[in-house]
Design a binder for these strands. Structure first.
Lengths: 208, 208
DNA sequence: AGCTGTGAACATATTCACAGCC
DNA sequence: GGCTGTGAATATGTTCACAGCT
């Protein structure tokens, strides 16, 4: 058992493993690296190496205890904590995310939804009332919000990213099709439909 | 100029460069690797190496011709072609994507939206009528659809992935929170909100 | 002088293959 | 016998640093 930092590539796979483990039928108390690998569409060596970064918790000849492994991964990912998030931009996507139920189940809790458009402010959505951008900073601070989700048009994203970081958000999940510039201590992940489609079409062309 | 295959990591960045180039003010006819790197939040060496895989098109002492570079990247990504896509699952997210305007602009064209729920079939959405799953295979074949987007609940995703691959779709963009198993020749990209949030919270924990 | 293109050095990630334990 | 844990080997990706062109 080492106590070095977990590689990025491994961190990105832990949520996938967790998802796979949670989808396992209740009766399977243990799981082998081979089985988990198949479900997650990776190799068994990868699974073993990834899990070894969390410490040696498997049993040779048997496999990993599903329950224990889930807990271990959840703990590693910080899912035992509460993560208040805000969503900025109440368009189609922002509404979809605000209405998405999967948040509460795992520590993520939408504590506010915001929009610049006065006609949207005051509307109810996903059990919350849409608020104006003027309220964003204060809300982030008072709720100790650590993750901000940007679902605005590209043109507004940079401004919102700055509002969020200034207010103290440490991580941003950006759905706007633009690269936002943030201070080096802020973590950003970009999710962009066009980008994903373009990567797919590249490989589609190559495949023939 | 080499003619080897472009590294995956580079392919994943090309759409980002393209996005950055397209957002450049019209008057800038050329761009240096340094400038592009700043906008894209990467290093200039990365930009140069990435672009070198497309051939040597920069001018020393000057930079890259913006127009020419855009065209080059678009061509490399296959954006000069038409990519008919289908969306399966008309929940919040599926509706959001169907209504998303950014498709048409770059070769991606939603030619069909599908849902298993009879109460949704027949509804209009994003200029299309929701159709039943029974129509999916035939439509995919007759429209030569190469990319399928899955926005169903997790429980339905595997079945839909199989319908899509059997019908001849070569690439799948999966928004359902589950890893779908597909034949090795099919390309899948997963976009999952929970996964992204979990990666962010991991690093948020580490940061303190 | 300024900026590209690229080998060489380095860092990260994956795979192999097998010793070690149940 | 079955399956983990992990060094060693390999492959992929990034950064450096500078020659070479305009």
């Amino acid at each position: 058992m080492k106590r070095i930092t977990i590689p990025k590539a491994t961190v990105a796979r832990l949520p996938v493993y967790l998802q796979c483990l949670e989808s396992l039928p209740g009766q399977s108390a243990t799981v082998s690296s081979e089985t988990l690998a198949n479900i997650a569409s990776v190799t068994s060596a990868k699974v073993r190496k990834d899990l070894s970064y969390l410490g040696s918790h498997g049993v040779r000849g048997v496999g990993y205890d599903v329950e224990q492994l889930c807990l271990l991964i959840r703990k590693e990912l910080g899912l035992t904590e509460d993560w208040p998030v805000v969503i900025v931009g109440v368009g189609n996507l922002g509404s979809a995310l605000a209405n998405y139920g999967g948040f509460g189940s795992s520590g993520y809790r939408v504590v506010g939804v915001y929009d610049a458009d006065p006609s949207k402010i005051g509307r109810g959505i996903g059990g919350l009332i849409v608020r104006g951008l003027a309220d964003l900073s204060g809300d982030v601070e008072s709720n100790r919000v650590s993750i901000g989700i940007i679902t605005t048009p590209a043109s507004a994203a940079q401004e919102i990213a700055e509002l969020l970081t200034t207010a103290g958000v440490g991580s941003i999940l950006n759905f706007a099709p633009v690269v936002v510039r943030v201070p080096p201590t802020t973590r950003v992940r970009n999710v962009d439909l066009a980008t994903e489609l373009q990567i797919l079409s590249y490989y589609s062309v190559q495949a023939r």
